[in-house]
Structure formats: structure tokens, C-alpha cells
Design a protein around this nucleic acid. Structure first.
Lengths: 258, 258
DNA sequence: CTAGCTTAAATGTGCGTACATTTCTGCTGA
DNA sequence: TCAGCAGAAATGTACGCACATTTAAGCTAG
């Protein structure tokens, strides 16, 4: 290993310089295969192990690396797992957690233009969009009516996908490599129209969640979604504390029967 | 200070035992005036300063204490500012942000017993509870019906409070020093009953949010709340990203008129 | 060639020291 | 009486060492 130098004039603490340099090298992909051990860093940077550990402690607190006793630290791989977050994800993951099987009936999958939606995606009105409309089931009962618009220039490969069992995000990541990293949701309480009520087989006096979502990937809007979720069977659950902030736990499933 | 002993048999690391003991004493209110310095802890627990700092580092990471150079550590006071979080807070703060004035009509404020609610607060069925029922207005229009139960042993001083303009949390903090630091919410979409509809002056075909909340302070449940919010004028807004997670931004107010 | 053991290596814990930097306290002098 | 300064005290940074505990590698024996 080449000998790396830190500024010892006292401008910034050594461990902080070391931490920042490690973050830089990590983001540059330098440690994709192996992360150097503490003693190796001691040699490279010519600082004490105490200082190295101080820097690594910070990196672990930020979730960038994981370390175990006797084993070399490794670059953390977790953060990409929890990407499709939000209220919708919370609701649908709760179905899985409750043991009910999920499947979808694709009611439409085509390419069309829609000026209103395109405007919400910051696109020209005439730009073609891939439109996917699904009726989502939890067990044998309808759960939600889900409608998604994506720019056709990105999502065209999805025209041939089978959406009866896989999720849109999985398909999107698989065929285009795209992953949502940002989004906004608007959650409203509404009374479904008679047509929607029939489609969802709602009981007469049931309300519903109307969720609008705009999803982005790397600062580019790529998804506009509207989902209507039956309110008689599903609820949003959230937990908050001074430390962890506000987190959706998992959408509660009220007893499916009756 | 009395000499405190830690288990040195190796069951748990010393710094972890120290950290846990400090958390315990902190929650017991032992450090409300001053938090002991590092050297004092070294004396008390008979461990090295390194070990003390390891424990304090964890406490700082959890936001329980704050420390500055040359100054004794102090119990953190910041997290309580943003405490009344959650969907309810989001909704009501949005009203303020929109410029509408808020006020409440107190429909009930008394002490009663309720076995069902008491059970949800982990209390005996016969324990008296302070009950507060308010109709909350945004501008001249009703916004929500809010019902709160608190253990009378804690909240009795609130019997004389004026809730037409101040918030419950402010009153609670002012007269008892109690602040919520943890909570759970369940958010449902419902159709209000005719009585509720009349009370809230809902239009005929409007849905509502039904929010149940259980609030805790220092691991003790102190609040059960049920709030019914008009769904025709208010929505929940949330934003999420890979870095910051899921955060309620501010409940959107759809144009009040019409 | 493989199972099992031994050894080496890496991180975790804990102690000690020294000095820097900042804050607070108390004293001194005008 | 008050301003300013010097010293004490506290935390921050940085170095060193020793040993415990766990993992991984290597070696030996069957």
C-alpha cells in the first residue's frame, strides 16, 4: 500500500480527515472487493489504531461499513434494499406479512399520451407514456386499484412484462436498472364512486385511501401513480420517537373476513 | 459520590453496563440539574476515562446528552422541541401554515373511568382518566373531532386549563413537565356517521381520517387519542428519500372554499 | 483428500499517558 | 464596583500497551 499523508497542522482532527478520505475512496469504488483492516490503515496513514478506530466508528454509525470481531470490515450493502418505501409499500408488504397471497389483474398495459400526467412528470404533453392499470388482490379479495404512468422512453421494455405476480419496481430495476430514490405522496380519505366500489367489491358504506405518488430517480421524475386502497380492510400504522423520527411500520390488516 | 460497582466477570462490556446505568439514572431524573463530568464518573465507577468516554459517545449518538469542549455534559433538551410529531401534528400545523386561525370548542372536560381505554394504556379498568373532547376549527369551518384520555393521576392539573386556544401538549408540559417522546398511530379511512357528519358539517359524500394514537413518555403510556379529521379538506403529505427516510411534510389543505 | 486441530490474524475491550483547546472561576488592580 | 487577566477544570485529540474473543487460514493425521 502507498503511504498516505494527513494534514497534521491541526486544522482538522486526524480521525475526521481519515474518515472523509475513506468515504471518498469508498464512493470511488475503491473498496468494492475488500475493505482494509485497522492495522493496514494504521500502516497506510501512519496514525495510531485508536485514531483509525475513531474514524471507523463514525463510518459504522453512518451505516457505510459493517464490522465483526475477528473479521475484516466490509462495505455495507443494505441501503438499496429498503428503497421502495412509502405508504404504498407499507400497505402491500403488510399483506405479505399477514400470509395472504398477492396477485394482480392487469386491466391495461399500453402506451398513450396524457397531457395532464405528463405535466406532473415535468414532460411535454405529447410525450408518450407507458400506462399500467392493475387491480390488486390480497387473498381472494380485491385490495386496490393501481394506475401508473411512466415515460415510455424509459419504461418501454416493460410492455412485455408479466405483472400478475411481480412488482413494478422489481421489473423496472431488472430491465432498466432504474431505482427510485425519492418520492412524494399525498394521502386522502375519499368515498369511492359506485364504479370503483363495484370493482373493489367494497361494502356499501366503506371509505378508501386515495394515494397520489410522484417517484423520482436521481432527480428525474419517472413515475406518477394513483392508487385507491380499500379503507375497510387496511390501515396505515406509524411509529415515532424522539430518536428515530416518524416511520411507517406496516399497514395493519384488519381481519379479512366479514 | 458513592462508589458504584460494575460486573467485571465479563458478561457484558464495562462501557455498556455504564451506559445502561446512566440511561437508567437519567430517566429517573437524577441528572436533571447537572450531569456528572467524565472524571467524576471515573471516580464513581472505578473505570478508565477511555471506558467512560465510550459510554458517553453512545449516549451522545442517541441524543440523550450533549457535550462541548471545556464544558460539562448536559442532558439534551433539544429533542423535545419537535416532539408533538406524527400525522396529527402534521395536519394541525398545516392549518397554521395556511394562515387559517385555529380554535377549539371544548365539549367535555372531566374525569371518568373507562375500562376499554384504560386497558389500552396498560392501566387497571377502574383507574380514573381525564377525558377531553374538543371540536377543532380551522377558520370558521370544523376540522376535526378530537377525544383524548389521560391518566388522572398525571393530568388532573389540566382540569382547570383553557383549551380553546392552546394545545394539549403545551398545557401538559407546562403544568406537569411531561413530554411525549414516543407514540404509535393507526390511520384509517372511514365514512363518518350521520351524527359526526352533522357535527363536522361535512358535505354528504365525504370521507374522513380516523386516527388512533397512543402516546408514551419515557416508556409509560400516557395518552390515548382518537381523532376524526374531515377528509374533504385535508390530506397527508409525505416525502421520502434514500437518505432521510419517510417524513411527513405538512398536511395539505385543499382549498377551503366550495 | 478430508476432517479436525492448531495457529495466526483481526477486531473488541480496557487501561494508561500526554497535551490541546475551550470554558469557567476567582483574583487582582484600576 | 467592575473589567481584565491568570489559573483551574473539563472535554477533545492522539499516542501507547495488553489481553480477550472471534474468525480465517494452514497444517497434520487418518
Amino acid at each position: 500500500m502507498t503511504e498516505r499523508r494527513l494534514d497534521r497542522s491541526g486544522g482538522q482532527p486526524l480521525w475526521k480527515q481519515l474518515q472523509q478520505d475513506l468515504v471518498r475512496r469508498l464512493r470511488a469504488g475503491e473498496f468494492d472487493d475488500v475493505f482494509p483492516g485497522e492495522l493496514a490503515l494504521v500502516e497506510d496513514y501512519q496514525v495510531s489504531r485508536h485514531t483509525v478506530r475513531q474514524a471507523l466508528t463514525k463510518l459504522r454509525a453512518d451505516g457505510l461499513i459493517v464490522a465483526e470481531r475477528g473479521r475484516q470490515p466490509r462495505v455495507a450493502t443494505s441501503p438499496e434494499i429498503r428503497q421502495p418505501m412509502g405508504a404504498l409499500y407499507s400497505l402491500f408488504s403488510s399483506v405479505e406479512a399477514s400470509g395472504l397471497t398477492q396477485h394482480s389483474v392487469v386491466r391495461a398495459l399500453d402506451i398513450r399520451a396524457d397531457g395532464v400526467i405528463a405535466a406532473r412528470l415535468d414532460l411535454e404533453a405529447s410525450i408518450p407514456l407507458l400506462y399500467l392499470e392493475r387491480l390488486r388482490f390480497a387473498g381472494d379479495e380485491p385490495l386496490a386499484l393501481d394506475r401508473v404512468w411512466l415515460p415510455a422512453s424509459i419504461a418501454a421494455p416493460l410492455l412485455d412484462a408479466d405483472f400478475t405476480h411481480t412488482s413494478l419496481y422489481n421489473e423496472l430495476a431488472a430491465s432498466t436498472g432504474l431505482r427510485l430514490d425519492h418520492g412524494r405522496e399525498d394521502i386522502r380519505a375519499v368515498v369511492p364512486t359506485p364504479a370503483e366500489r363495484t370493482l373493489l367489491r367494497c361494502p356499501p358504506e366503506a371509505a378508501a385511501f386515495s394515494i397520489n405518488r410522484q417517484g423520482s430517480s436521481q432527480n428525474r421524475p419517472v413515475e406518477w401513480r394513483h392508487t385507491l386502497v380499500r379503507g375497510d380492510r387496511f390501515a396505515l400504522s406509524a411509529e415515532f420517537s424522539a430518536n428515530t423520527g416518524y416511520r411507517l411500520t406496516t399497514g395493519a390488516v384488519t381481519h379479512a373476513g366479514a
